[in-house]
């Protein structure tokens, strides 16, 4: 299953190829892994040295914050999307 991934504008030069991005997997966890495999420069922007999602980065799966999901147990369906968002920060 392939799904679409969107990024904030600041991260668009960290990926190559067509946009929106396409990633593949059977679960959300596999899709996220595929995202970093295909676009390794994204890793430093999304995750810190300890492998933790940066505090002001939000990953949404459709309308849901991934923090509240179990990616391993979330199957992909046609039309699903992952959105990388910046948490509202500052003024």
């Amino acid at each position: 299953m392939e799904i679409e991934v969107t990024l904030p504008g600041l991260l668009r030069d960290s990926v190559d190829g067509p946009y929106p991005l396409r990633v593949a997997g059977t679960t959300l966890a596999e899709a996220l892994e595929d995202l970093l495999d295909r676009h390794p420069r994204l890793r430093v922007h999304l995750y810190d040295e300890q492998g933790q999602l940066r505090p002001h980065v939000l990953l949404y799966f459709n309308e849901d914050n991934i923090a509240w999901l179990d990616p391993l147990a979330t199957p992909l369906r046609p039309g699903d999307r992952v959105h990388v968002l910046q948490a509202v920060s500052g003024g």
Binding site: L11, S14, R41, V44, H45, L46, V57, Q86, S89
Partner: peptide, 23 residues
């Protein structure tokens, strides 16, 4: 660098016309 997205180095070989983020 960016307080949300962290730091990297970017390079330009054409005086800033285009930029590439280091792998």
């Amino acid at each position: 660098s960016h307080f949300v997205y962290g730091p990297t180095i970017r390079v330009s070989d054409d005086l800033g016309e285009t930029w590439t983020e280091l792998e």
